[in-house]
Design a binder for these strands. Sequence first.
DNA 1: GGCGCTGTTGCAAGCGCGTGCAAATGCTGC
DNA 2: GCAGCATTTGCACGCGCTTGCAACAGCGCC
Lengths: 363, 363
Amino acid sequence: MAIVTTCTQLQSCANSVHRSQQIRAIVSQKPFVSAQEVAERAGVSRSAVSRTFTPGASVSPETRRKVVEAADALGYHVNHLARGLMLNESGIVCLIVSDMGTPYRSSLIRAVTQQLQDAGKIAMLVNTDRSDGSVDLALRQAIRYRADASIILSGMPDKSITQLCLKNGQRLVLINRDDDQEGPFRINLDDAAAAGRLVTAFLRAGCRRLAFANSEAGTPSLMARERGFVAAAKAIGLEVVVERYGPTGYESGRVLAQRLLTQSERPDAVFCATDLIACGFMDAARHQFSISIPPQLCVAGFDDIEQAAWSSYELTTFAQPVEAIAREAVAWLGKDSSENPAERNHSVRLNADLVWRSSIRGG
Amino acid sequence: MAIVTTCTQLQSCANSVHRSQQIRAIVSQKPFVSAQEVAERAGVSRSAVSRTFTPGASVSPETRRKVVEAADALGYHVNHLARGLMLNESGIVCLIVSDMGTPYRSSLIRAVTQQLQDAGKIAMLVNTDRSDGSVDLALRQAIRYRADASIILSGMPDKSITQLCLKNGQRLVLINRDDDQEGPFRINLDDAAAAGRLVTAFLRAGCRRLAFANSEAGTPSLMARERGFVAAAKAIGLEVVVERYGPTGYESGRVLAQRLLTQSERPDAVFCATDLIACGFMDAARHQFSISIPPQLCVAGFDDIEQAAWSSYELTTFAQPVEAIAREAVAWLGKDSSENPAERNHSVRLNADLVWRSSIRGG
DNA sequence: GGCGCTGTTGCAAGCGCGTGCAAATGCTGC
DNA sequence: GCAGCATTTGCACGCGCTTGCAACAGCGCC
């Protein structure tokens, strides 16, 4: 019986050599070097090669030396696709982002990719600028590549898709996407609280006619900032003029300035929902309306993008703790899922610290 | 013989069922759904499922319907890791980048990822901010994940590594990394020529005392801009004051302003190697030296980042054709490698068009 | 009815890897 | 010298997939 088995093995083996050569000739001239080839060159078994590159496996120093030698003579690199197939763990983490040319987004991507790499993982980037529903498409892509996790920086996936991801053992992180779905790990800022604190700052600077310049995007973070600001103002008996327009960019800031600065009772303090809006607002205020900031007008923003520190703006703003966000996200990915059954539905809330610059007088 | 073979097959099959259940129980509670399960539910063979999701394969409409139905009842998604293993083509393209929080870099990343997705590929992002040699590490990572190609936006890999990539059938694209290596596809700008054209523009604006504000980074693009500018000036008998400092960011611009604007013969036209440098330069010139731009000083930059259009800068600058760069890169990836043997050593040079804004008088 | 042809389908092999199991090896202590 | 043990090694299997090959079904035509 054993002999017969060996016989069929040999037969199929002979077949395979023929087949694979044929296929290789067709598909590509020279595929990547495999563990098999390394094993042959080192005069050991393929398992020995595999074990050499598997941390914690049992290999004698002598064998390891031979393998390593042969490996980098041939330029061998472990195939992470195959490894992922075996281990059911690809090491890939999918970042789902729109507007990634934007300063805040790109700095967040930078921080996250760096942290992922430090944790031995790798980022796969999916751009969801195009249409709606593309967040769902992106998550499907993540499933196809068997990403260990997906981190969503923009948009909001359909509930059915997130359930699909979770059912497939994919972990999900939502950043600033305030949502009450169970399952995903959610990282949020204290948007409303931060915005509330700003009212006091404006008051101390002697401002009384407050305005809020928002985008029409209507994401939870933006709305929380608006709510927090308006509520805190109302609490001390002040009304806030709220204006909303367009996306969250520079141009919107200019338009919002047009609207807010042409009112009969011109505001003396404006909180812009994002720094980009604030930059546009300030530029329009200065160059079109010849208003000097701060004396005549105080402005604050949110995100603390690099440009906020530029001396043309010197913008007082709330800092997005990008490093902390990235750290939280990656740390959670590293955690054992079954660790804390009580933490099934987990989320974290981080502070946005106010960075004082001269766009508000006093301080 | 056939019977005996079947027998051993059955035996090993029985083993396998036992083993795989055991492994699954240990490794993870619930793996992704496989083609096997879809096949069983649809009452067809596993090959039928595979063919259903392979474009151009022969499946009857009836079978396809049954498969698709079962597939999305179970939430099945083709495993691209396994598919990549078979086809020797992962669909992954590796982007190797440093400073990706920077406006120019992030907009390039945006364009490339979008184009890749349109071409049915997916971007893997590697951050090389950390140490030197990390470009090599990044390329090794690309090899491990069997990326079909790597696109290098920053740094310069060691020759031995690029050779390794090419030998492994990986395609390589170098963007603005002027280099004479054979093999990689190189996309470059006409940096020197563009810079040369700027001299004429400055002249027409009545400037005579030219300066070039460069970073110390010394990348080929930056040096080409410097060379082109200096050469064109010399050609018409003008000397250029060249100053170099630090990285290519805003802060360097400020320092360079300190140096160039405190000279006895203050320049009346400054070409900054990047827009970020230009922004820093302009801010320092205006706010520290109270120089008004353009009357007293003309400034130009390079990249046409978003901030260059902001009304605080209105910077005349050369536009990086990011969309065209991305298109060229992705188009080349799609090409059959054996198509044009003469084009083995291929490269492309794109124009950087001058965008006129008010930081230079006249126009 | 038999034949050839076309379009589908299932079988089985193998992509490169990790790993349980059993065999082999080396070493200690009596 | 040999039992007993610890360590290392090789074998073989399967992860989920694609695909060549052969078997097969359907069909028109002589």
